[in-house]
Design a protein around this nucleic acid. Structure first.
Lengths: 178, 178
DNA sequence: TCAATATGAATGAACG
DNA sequence: CGTTCATTCATATTGA
């Protein structure tokens, strides 16, 4: 899905160089998503600046992009959850639906606890943990549909997570003024 | 577009309905279009839920499909309208869309409150928008700009930074990690 | 089979 | 923050 037009791919599909709107690279998305999954929801101004600075290593980015990204991601996470929670697909007679496992949308079991007081836990955030990755598989299915054909995203995730691209310093968001 | 399917009649969609993306049935499209033409343009979350529930009678559907359908339909209506109205002498902004006489939705008694707040009052469509626009609308349309790099970021900066920035400062914010 | 189109899905940006 | 708009990507459909 969205991975296909990132600069991480080869050919920018006819929209890459348009200056109108930020087009995040796969690495940028990976880092942002990682931060989000680590619990960061509403980064402070300084955090935004630091994240933006770090992400500029991967491509053009501004602070406002980081700001908007978190706003949108948070809002859509919540919206997603609200929508899908009330969804019942009760089609009585469907012959074509054996592909869909009717999974009851429990993909987001772990994301919702941070909304109350999140910021304290992440005063220090390593963006590129050199060793330990846990609990990242569920993120591949984070879409708010319970579709089973999300292999594009799975491929993207495997691609971006699978290897290190460059040498880069880890982003340390330690803030000395709290 | 008159696709061939008859999930209601039992015939599975002729083409291979892979689970990749929602393929609305003719009945679903009919109902959605009818709602749209009745004036419904941006259904609320609750309305989306109800519509989705109702439409699930005709086949598989999720609320996000309803959400996207209205979003796309409205956007493309406006898009086409803008494209067409470009030949007029003045590129003045017309009020959003056609304002159909609002007929009560006959398919969903429970959803009878059609959410078309701003357009509801107008009965006569003004083909030639006079210079007396209401403040709200002109205010809404004022920001319309096709400029490439419209730094609307100022609001964000003012809000988050509390300082006077019109652009993100070119400071090198490389942190003192390590 | 392939190009053109219609349209579902996604998301950056911004409004109220 | 929740909602809305604009633009783009992805894919199903259709016609030649």
């Amino acid at each position: 899905m969205a991975a296909s037009y990132g600069s991480g791919g080869g050919g920018p599909p006819s929209s890459g160089t348009k200056c109108g709107r930020w087009n995040p690279t796969a690495e940028q998305v990976r880092v942002l998503t990682d931060l989000f999954r680590s619990g960061l929801r509403t980064p402070s101004t300084d955090q935004i600046q630091k994240i933006s600075t770090q992400l500029s290593f991967y491509g053009k980015i501004e602070s406002k992009n980081v700001f908007y990204w978190f706003q949108n991601h948070k809002a859509r996470e919540r919206q997603k959850r609200r929508r899908v929670s009330k969804d019942h697909d009760a089609p009585c007679f469907q012959l074509d639906d054996h592909l869909k496992p009717i999974a009851p949308a429990k993909y987001f079991g772990e994301i919702n606890q941070i909304a109350c007081e999140p910021e304290r836990a992440i005063e220090t955030l390593q963006l590129f943990p050199l060793n330990s990755y846990h609990e990242q598989e569920s993120d591949k299915l984070r879409m708010f549909s319970n579709d089973c054909c999300k292999e594009n995203y799975a491929t993207f995730a495997a691609y971006t997570f699978g290897r290190d691209h460059f040498d880069h310093p880890p982003l340390d968001l330690r803030l000395s003024f709290f």
